[in-house]
């Protein structure tokens, strides 16, 4: 019986360690009557529980994110198809603008660093400085690096994470390369938290993949509203502020969420799309010309193949 209790104690302490590493509250089902471990596993729980966050100002999204965007550590943003890279780049840039604003309010003029795999920029276009500027980003405080390989990009990212100057670091990767798997993302996450820098991993045309990010968002394009006129009406047939369809695929706290957002470059903040349009968008979700999504994964097994994919085996004899 006593042995059993010791085992239980070990398991409990391991669970708590995992919870502490994952930087969240311990699962509520766990009994927490135990005294603090002498090894000090629970020492900084108070610090960890109120995580530094940047609220987005949209209650349903902030609820899912437990207060807002993490101010340090890894956040992943992905899009499924290359042609959606514009929308995802917009969302990433918007987050970078928010981070930059946050640093500015503290009195630092901090630059944003965008590290891009060369292939990603060739496929989906280069970031365009006037466009970034009209999107609300401080383009004078913006550095861009184009790395030839994923390994180079990772090296630059790690170097950048060790210097405390950047408001945000964006790492743009195409597909699901083997050189950026779970262990590498874990390493980046730990480094970003140690350096107290937000790292946005922008996975272009990539699949869902296990990673150490706090959150993983999937961005899909969404039709914009119409341009408002001074008298309160809208200009018919015009294209208004950029809109996004945001799916929270991974979150440590709650189930996934599905939210439509609009970015206002003048106010530099997100707004929710109003109810009527939201409802229309949710129903009108079927594309007319669907394209079989092909991810840009390279050198990686794609998990279980759907049944009927392999029609005939090669002849053995």
């Amino acid at each position: 019986m006593a042995e059993n209790a010791v085992q239980r104690q070990t398991i409990l302490s391991l669970r708590e360690t995992i919870a502490r590493i994952e930087n969240g509250c311990p699962p509520p089902a766990m009994p927490t009557t135990r005294e603090p471990d002498p090894a000090g596993f629970r020492r900084d729980r108070e610090g960890a529980s109120h995580r530094k966050a940047l609220p987005l100002g949209i209650p349903p999204l902030d609820g899912v994110l437990r207060g807002g965007l993490p101010l340090q550590g890894l956040t992943e943003i992905r899009n499924a198809e290359t042609r959606d890279a514009g929308a995802a780049a917009g969302f990433v840039t918007a987050l970078a603008v928010l981070y930059q604003q946050e640093r500015k309010s503290k009195g630092h003029l901090a630059p944003v660093l965008w590290i891009s795999q060369g292939l990603a920029a060739r496929e989906a276009g280069h970031p365009y400085a006037p466009g970034l500027k009209s999107f609300g980003l401080d383009a004078e405080h913006f550095l861009f690096v184009s790395a030839r390989t994923v390994k180079d990009a990772l090296w630059i990212t790690e170097t950048a994470l060790s210097v405390p100057v950047f408001a945000a670091i964006i790492l743009e990767i195409r597909g699901n390369p083997t050189s950026l798997a779970l262990s590498e993302s874990r390493r980046l996450h730990v480094k970003a938290r140690a350096g107290k820098v937000p790292l946005l991993l922008f996975r272009q045309a990539g699949e869902e993949e296990a990673s150490s990010a706090f959150f993983r968002f999937r961005i899909r394009p969404a039709p914009t509203g119409e341009r408002p006129l001074p008298d309160g009406s809208v200009l018919c047939g015009s294209i208004g502020h950029p809109a996004f369809h945001l799916l929270v695929e991974k979150s440590r706290f709650q189930a996934s969420a599905d939210i439509f957002l609009e970015w206002n470059p003048h106010d530099r903040r997100f707004y929710p799309i109003d109810e009527r349009r939201n409802a229309a968008l949710q129903t009108n979700d079927q594309p007319e010309n669907p394209v079989d999504p092909l991810s840009a994964s390279a050198g990686r097994s794609r998990g279980a193949q759907p049944l009927g994919r392999l029609l005939a085996f090669a002849r053995a004899s």
């Binding site: 276009g125 280069h126 970031p127 365009y128 466009g131 009209s134 405080h141």
Partner: peptide
């Protein structure tokens, strides 16, 4: 130094410029 300093009042661009551009 230009990256760290406060920016001079830069010129404004037309709003309708894309975020990504093809070379």
């Amino acid at each position: 130094a230009a990256v760290m300093d406060a920016p001079a009042e830069g010129k404004t661009f037309p709003e309708n410029r894309p975020l990504r551009i093809f070379a």
